[in-house]
Design a protein around this nucleic acid. Structure first.
Lengths: 167, 167
DNA sequence: TCAACTTTGTTGACGAATCATCTAACTGAT
DNA sequence: ATCAGTTAGATGATTCGTCAACAAAGTTGA
């Protein structure tokens, strides 16, 4: 599996630098699948519930939090978003009335909490979203291949962690 | 009361609407893997070569085209981008000197072609990109699982096409 | 107590993506 | 030839995401 025939200098004409046919196909198909799947999921959710993927991600995290409230940086950790993106997006969601900032007794930065409208929005959207993920992803792939996919995801993430890049 | 299992109609209270543990895990892991993988790929390419994922996608298509030139709508078909996104992005790439618009003999809309600088940019970046995709994706997953993944992608795309949504 | 440092969060500017709209060119039928 | 319908492409407004800089606390240490 390792690439034998390593040369002294990388060159664009050197086949070893490139993906072979199968890898190429797998990669392109993966890219296409991901793009299509997300186009469908997002479009659905946007059209039916007015929630973007970003909105949804925030609100799922909030709704699963112990008391329905989290500090902004905790949201940042679970979503892996940049803090500025998070800040900007929370401001917009606050203006739309989906979340609010509430100061807890002590004088730390405020918690982010779902408003009643916000909670209604996810609980309204979640079933349809779950159903879509199920039919288009989980059921389409099927249990055996899904298990393999999960392994593959682990393998990729391990490779990312071990191989150079601390990101 | 609402907990009894509906048989005839789908319902939000029906367990069948939700993802089970395994599906849930698979989906979240997939989301996380994709996010991490792309963060690494894009960051690398951006940092080392100043090319975004979008730039790269355009230029790969152009470099593989018969005579290194394509009509804009052909690029649109192979990238699956919206035409306005394509138009905006091509304008920016043109301003950066990566591509140019060239009118071919007859009076149709101009072809999009790589400039010398543009060609140099991909041929410079492509090996590193291919190597990254290989180590982080193809080799990490391994040939057997990669084959299964490819099947899964096909299955998802079929499901998307058959099931309602014309997108 | 004071200064350096880290953590948490905000802001503004700019690049990128989407949507709706608009234009020009091609197609084809009368 | 002309009018309608489609296709290819551009544009502007709006929104989203990133980057860099900033600010306000909290922490550590002399």
């Amino acid at each position: 599996m390792t690439r034998q025939r390593a040369r002294t200098m990388p060159s664009v004409t050197d086949d070893d630098m490139w993906l072979d046919e199968t890898e190429q196909l797998a990669w392109r198909k993966y890219l296409q699948m991901h793009r299509l799947l997300f186009a469908h999921l997002i479009q659905h959710q946007q059209r039916e519930f007015g929630l973007s993927a970003a909105d949804y991600e925030i609100m799922v995290n909030l709704s699963e939090a112990p008391r329905g409230r989290m500090r902004a940086f905790e949201l940042g950790e679970s979503t892996l978003w940049e803090k500025s993106r998070l800040s900007h997006h929370l401001k917009r969601m606050e203006q739309r009335g989906l979340v609010c900032r509430e100061v807890t007794g002590n004088s730390r930065s405020p918690d982010i909490a779902l408003t009643a409208a916000g909670r209604a929005a996810i609980t309204g959207a979640a079933p349809a979203h779950a159903a879509n993920v199920r039919t288009w992803f989980a059921e389409a792939i099927g249990p055996e291949r899904l298990a393999v996919l999960t392994e593959s995801c682990d393998a990729v993430m391990e490779a990312l962690e071990s191989h150079d890049c601390p990101l």
